[in-house]
Design a protein around this nucleic acid. Structure first.
Lengths: 128, 128
DNA sequence: ATAGGGGTTCCAGTCAATGGAAGGTCAAGG
DNA sequence: CCTTGACCTTCCATTGACTGGAACCCCTAT
């Protein structure tokens, strides 16, 4: 199938699929007219990629996961290590955002939000 | 003072400060030899910027906040709107990451992490 | 023949820095 | 006076993961 159909079925923009080919994540064959031709196996890869990306795995992690996915002799430990590392990163990011949220919500609550210039948010940014 | 001292006192890399000048967030004067010269007011701005950035405000939000900071006739409502918008964005991001975390932690828990190829994580990525 | 809806490549831009190269400036020490 | 080393300067390239757009090719239907 052509890239438009592949995009529709994988739930990815065609542009993203071209990009994935560019960086070697998928390697569709070409028809005589130069059009990319996607097999069901290509589609599987693209869907897999879409899911992995939507879980926040980086492109390089996706590359590693795809390689493991294609390797019948893989050890699930290798997959788990990647996923656990990503999970840890997510936890760190959530903690970081929660800390921001904590500080920021206090400042926002303290701000009258009226026409007067006095502002606890600006004071908070000024004085730490 | 020179950029190195400004960087040390503001807690920002010198490179970042040059970048901030480049995009017009600060406009230090120049000494005869071409070196940037930072006043205490410049330093105040840089510190303000560092705090705002560490709370996750975008550069454009920082620009707007700095302008309000400098405007004695500001309405705190304008500050609050920016901060509330950012807070909402943080909440959305936390929700997104929490959803990822939820899915991913289930998959990781289900994975034996041994030498065998069977892997619930890969199956999860394959089948949604 | 032409209109449209595909497809192709390549280049630029996003965001917020960061790394590095090539070179100018300054104070201290020999 | 010269050198060393720590500063400082500008400019260009790179990051991640796309996304937008230009210019052009292909195919089908009218």
């Amino acid at each position: 199938m052509n890239i438009g159909d592949a995009a529709g079925r994988a739930g990815l923009p065609a542009k993203t699929i071209r990009y994935y080919e560019d960086i070697g994540l998928v390697t569709p064959h070409r028809a005589a007219n130069g059009y990319r031709r996607f097999t069901e196996a290509d589609l599987h890869k693209l869907t897999f990629l879409g899911r992995a990306r939507s879980l926040g795995f980086s492109i390089e992690e996706c590359r590693a996961l795809l390689a493991l996915y294609a390797d019948d002799g893989r050890a699930s430990a290798d997959v788990k290590r990647i996923a656990q590392g990503h999970l840890d990163r997510i936890d760190r990011k959530i903690a970081e955002l929660s800390a921001m949220r904590e500080t920021l919500s206090h400042l926002v609550q303290a701000c009258a939000g009226d026409q007067k210039p006095d502002c606890p948010i600006l004071r908070g940014l000024e004085n730490g």
